[in-house]
Every structure is written in structure tokens, then in C-alpha cells.
């Protein structure tokens, strides 16, 4: 599904990703944990196609195709979905208008006709209900004035509608209350499938209690420092990152 090979990325002359390698198999849920500022969000942005990063070396392959050549739109249409750590507020654009534009863009990319409005409304209503997103939120401008938790739910709502090949969740758990965490995790679990993978970036074991990962990667200083099973996350809870950052060594 996703292969990141020897990825070197810098921003404004500063090296952030330093030869990162990572493989996520079909249907796999991989968790990434790691200290603040280690480059987790950078990795997710580079995969999603944000500009301003200098990719100095390496490849990102989605089903064997190097997506680094594509712009963000093409990557989204190829099946990459990033649930942002900080979702953007878009004043003046009603959430519904935005969702429709996104779904229509996807339909066009697949060579399908645009969705009829009643069909679209039904889809959105159902998905919103499952994620506890109030109907009136859909009428408001996208993310404007939404609480931190509401923004995160909206990200997952979008993912549920767009049905990507790979969903990258960048700290989707931060800002969610205990109940919302379960609702959102259920939403993600419902999307788990043989042909859909997830990269779950988080600081806390709690999310991984709900979204059970197949693999856990520890990222430190711009690369994957260790890979293990779900037990690795529990180990980190106890011992922290000292062993990986080199600072305590």
C-alpha cells in the first residue's frame, strides 16, 4: 500500500526528515508515536502533498506509484487522505458546499457523474449522525468557530465520505473528550478494510485502546527508530522516549 523509502526532507534549510523508511501494508493500521517536534506532522504533510517542503531524496509509493510527482489534488484523488492535526477554518464556505465540492471532485476524478443532491444529502446526514455531528454544524462555514473536538469529528466525517485508500490521522485524538474519542474511533474502525490502510499519529495509548494497531513505530529525530507490535506503545507509556532521543543516553 504505502512505502516511504529513504525520505529526506528539509524546511527552510533545516533538515526534518532524515532518511525515513516506513511500510504500511494493505489493510494495516500502523501507529506512529514520537516526541514533539520530531517530524510526524511533516511526514504526513509531505505524503499529502503540501508545498514548501524540500524533498531532497527518497520516494513515497502508493501501490507502487511514486506520488511525490503529484500535486495535492492528484494525491487526494489517488486515495490519500490526511486528517489534519489543525484543521483549517474556511470562512464564508458552508460545510455542505465544501463537502459537495469534495465529493464531486472525487466523482469526476473517477470518471463518474456528479452526485445528485438528494443522494448527497442522505450520505452526509447518515455519516454525520454516526459521528455525532449536529446537522446545524453542516450549515455553518467550514470549521469556523467549531470547537477543537468538533473540528476533529469533521475530519473523520470527510474521511468517511471520501473513503480513501490510506487515511493518515494526525493526532485526531487531541481535543476529543472521552465519549467523542470512542465515537471517532468507532468511525475509523468501521472504515477498516482489506484494501484500506491507516497511519495513526498519536501521543497516547488511549486512542490505541480503541483503534487497535497492527504495528507501532517510534519516530525520533526524523526517522523511524523502532518498530514493534501493540506492546511497544505500552512500553513507551512507562519509559518515555529517552532511549530514542539520545538525550538521556
Amino acid at each position: 500500500m504505502l512505502e516511504v523509502k529513504n525520505l529526506h526532507v528539509s524546511v527552510g534549510g533545516r533538515k526534518i526528515l532524515d532518511g525515513l523508511n516506513l511500510t504500511v501494508k494493505d489493510g494495516e493500521v500502523a501507529a506512529i508515536m514520537g516526541p514533539n517536534g520530531t517530524g510526524k506532522s511533516t511526514l504526513s504533510y509531505v505524503i499529502a502533498g503540501r508545498e514548501d517542503y524540500e524533498v531532497e531524496e527518497g520516494e513515497v509509493l502508493l501501490d507502487g506509484v511514486n506520488i511525490l510527482e503529484m500535486d495535492a489534488t492528484e494525491r487526494a484523488n489517488a486515495g490519500v487522505f490526511l486528517a489534519f492535526q489543525y484543521p483549517l477554518e474556511i470562512p464564508g464556505v458552508a460545510t455542505m458546499t465544501f463537502l459537495k465540492a469534495a465529493l464531486n471532485a472525487q466523482a469526476r476524478a473517477k470518471g463518474q457523474g456528479e452526485l445528485q443532491t438528494p443522494e448527497f444529502m442522505k450520505k452526509v446526514r447518515e455519516a454525520a449522525q454516526k459521528l455525532g455531528v449536529a446537522q446545524d454544524m453542516l450549515k455553518r462555514p467550514l470549521n469556523v468557530g467549531f470547537s477543537g473536538g468538533e473540528k476533529k469529528r469533521m475530519e473523520i466525517l470527510q474521511m468517511a465520505l471520501l473513503q480513501p485508500k490510506i487515511g493518515i490521522l494526525d493526532e485526531t485524538d487531541s481535543g476529543l473528550d472521552i465519549d467523542a474519542l470512542r465515537i471517532v474511533a468507532d468511525g475509523v474502525n468501521a472504515l477498516r478494510a482489506q484494501d484500506r490502510s491507516f497511519l495513526v499519529i498519536t501521543h497516547y495509548q488511549r486512542l490505541l485502546d480503541y483503534i487497535k494497531p497492527d504495528t507501532v513505530h517510534v519516530m525520533a529525530r526524523g526517522k523511524i527508530a523502532r518498530t514493534g507490535g501493540p506492546e511497544l506503545a505500552l512500553e513507551l507509556e512507562k519509559s518515555g522516549y529517552a532511549a530514542f532521543t539520545g538525550e538521556a543516553a
Partner: peptide
């Protein structure tokens, strides 16, 4: 136009032109 907003919209599959149009229309 805000580059980050454009990226956000593109990350949801809108073309750059569509993303810009949506933001301009809102403005």
C-alpha cells in the same frame, strides 16, 4: 489567498482552480 487553505481544499480533492474559486466566492 491563504496557501494553507488552498492546500486543505486540494487535500480533499479540489483542483487548485476550484479551491481558489471557492475561497474567492466566499470573499
Amino acid at each position: 489567498l491563504d496557501k494553507n487553505q488552498i492546500f486543505y481544499l486540494q487535500a480533499r480533492g479540489l483542483s487548485r482552480g476550484e479551491a481558489e474559486s471557492l475561497l474567492l466566492e466566499a470573499f
